[in-house]
Structures are given as C-alpha cells and as structure tokens.
C-alpha cells in the first residue's frame, strides 16, 4: 500500500514538472520579446541599451534552460512573480481567490456526486421503468447543456423574472451567511449540472454491469434482500468507475469555474484567469495554470488512493 502511494506521488511530481515546463514556455513561445510582458506598452519608449540591461536584470540573457531553473527556484520559494495589472504578488492574488473557487467547486462536487450516485443507482435498479427513463433523459440533457447557458437561463428566470435571487456577485460567508448562500445557489447549480449528469450515467451503467456478475447471482442464491445486495455487494464494486468520473469532475469544475465565475461575476480563480488572459497579465495566468495543475495532481492522487481502498486487488498487489 505504501509503495503504491509513493509510486503515485512520484508520478504526480513528474506531471507537475512537465506542467511547469509548459507554463514557463508559455511566455517564451509567444511572439515578441518577453520584456513586453514586463514593460507592457512602455516597451517602445526604451532604448536598445536599456532593454539589454533589463534583460540582464531579469536574467533573460541566460540560456533558456538556466532561466527555467531560476524561475523554478523562485517558484519553490513561493514567488510566482507580480501581476502586471494589479501590481501585487501573484501568490497573494491566488491566496485571496482560491477559497472562493474552492467553496464553489467543493459544493458543486458534493452535490453532483451525491445526486448523481443516488439517481444512477435508482435508474439501474429500476431499469426500463419510468423512473429510469426520466433519470436517463434528464442525464442526457444535463450532459449536453453548456453550463454558461444554464447560468444565463438561471439568472434570467430566478433573478430577473422572479427576483428571488441576486443576479450576480459574491459575499463572503463571514460577512453575511444568508446572502452568501443565496448568491451561491445559481453558480453551484450550474457547475454541478454537467457533473451530476455524467455521474448519473456512469453510476447507472456500472451498476448494471455489476448486476450481471456471477457473484451477484451468488448473493441472490444466499437469500439476501435486494437492498443488501445493492448496498453491500453492488455499490462498492460499481464505485470504481464512479470515483474515476469524480476525479475527472474536479478538472471540469475548474474549467467550468472560468465560465461560471464570469457569468455570475464571482471573484475566484476562474475569473482571475479569464481577466488575466484578456489583459495579457501573464504571471497571473501562469500562477492560475500551475495552481490548477497542483489541484488536478492532488485529485488524481486521492482517486488512486480511493481505488486501493475500494479494490483489495489493487491494495494487495503493491504490498
């Protein structure tokens, strides 16, 4: 088990290194001088000598590989550079905005997983009945609707037409908890629609597959009730693909957060990245991408550990 976790951890580190190379190259493969990124529109006011001197100051005259290691070194010290637009360290921006996105994403993940699992199990054991049809049609719909569109429709109905909920914005739960909740309903719902639909479909099909296994017939032959067979014998076996889907949801959540936070005007990582791209604030974009890479690698690690917990064959093969 320990060997298994260590192997997964090392693999995660490799992924992070590769991601950091891409993030680093992002600025360098863009056409033009990297100093553009630092100086912005003032660039044209500098003479060639001044630019060369700045290049030396920033280490841009070194070979690319040397620059990468310099950058990586400061990265490991927590220095992600400074935002060109806001003139503050990127790490401070991330610290301020990550909790907002996490709040949104974790809630959405919980809702989509719990509802998706429940609906999927119901659809599977009621296969072919009307409840299965309703759930399956709903899930297919949910998987095809883009979340920004769901967001716009949601705002139109509940905020604009009915006036029940605020149109957009974000309030910290520590300032006003009720408003916080009201403001979260829309974005969390939008963010969870796709996940819920995907999870329902995955759960349904994997439960149906498990239902035809020989050991389920054995369980029936023992005289167990359907409830016990579903909960004890089927769910744990059917959960493995479900956990995979859940892991993938996390990356979808962050991707979706870019859109949903923009639609609902929420100051999270997603909006920060969208703004950063719009304003060519490269250090901010780099910081955001790196953060997402870390989140995804950590998620995969958790998913791998969940596999081992669910399936003894994985757990024992690395002992």
């Amino acid at each position: 088990m320990t060997t298994y976790i260590i192997r997964r951890l090392l693999l995660g580190i490799v992924v992070l290194i590769v991601a950091s190379i891409f993030v680093f190259l992002m600025v360098h493969v863009l056409p033009g001088d990297p100093l553009w990124v630092v100086l912005g529109e003032n660039y044209i006011n500098y003479s060639q000598e001044e630019l060369d001197e700045l290049r030396h100051v920033y280490g841009l005259d070194k070979p690319l590989i040397g620059q990468y290691f310099d950058w990586l070194g400061s990265l490991l010290k927590g220095d992600l550079g400074e935002s060109i637009v806001y003139q503050v360290p990127v790490i401070d921006l991330l610290k301020r905005r990550l909790p907002v996105t996490l709040n949104l994403a974790v809630l959405a993940l919980l809702i989509s997983t719990i509802c998706g699992l429940g609906l999927g199990v119901i659809a599977a054991i009621r296969r072919g009945k009307w409840s299965d049809t309703v759930v399956s049609v709903g899930a297919n719909l949910g998987i095809t609707l883009p979340n920004f569109w769901v967001g716009i429709v949601f705002i139109y109905i509940f905020a604009y037409k009915l006036g029940w909920l605020p149109t957009y914005g974000y309030t910290s739960p520590f300032d006003d908890f009720v408003t916080h909740l009201k403001m979260l309903i829309g974005p969390v719902l939008c963010l969870s629609v796709f996940g819920m639909a995907a999870q329902t479909r995955q759960t349904r099909s994997s439960m149906l597959e498990v239902a035809h296994q020989d050991y389920i017939r054995t369980a029936w032959s023992k005289g167990l009730t359907e409830r016990v067979i579903v909960i004890r014998h089927m769910v744990k076996n059917g959960l493995i693909p479900v956990v995979t889907t859940m892991g993938m949801q996390v990356s979808f959540m962050f991707g979706g957060a870019v859109l949903v936070e923009t639609v609902f005007n929420i100051p999270g990582i997603g909006r920060m990245m969208a703004d950063g791209i719009g304003m060519r604030d490269y250090p901010v974009v780099q910081g955001g991408v790196l953060l997402m890479a870390v989140v995804i690698v950590l998620t995969n690690l958790v998913v791998d550990m969940a596999y081992a917990w669910l399936d003894p064959r994985i757990r024992y093969s690395y002992r």
């Binding site: 296994q213 020989d214 050991y215 017939r217 054995t218 369980a219 029936w220 032959s221 023992k222 005289g223 167990l224 004890r232 014998h233 744990k236 076996n237 669910l310 399936d311 003894p312 064959r313």
Partner: peptide, 21 residues
Amino acid sequence: IRGAKIAMIFQEPMTSLNPVL
C-alpha cells in the same frame, strides 16, 4: 429458503465470489 434450505455452489469459483468483500 435460498441459502438456508437450498444452497447452491456455482461453476466458476473465480467469479462467483465478490472480489471486494
């Protein structure tokens, strides 16, 4: 009756036992 009065032994011992229990 199943399991208590009539019990069954199946063909494939590899697949007839639940792998996660």
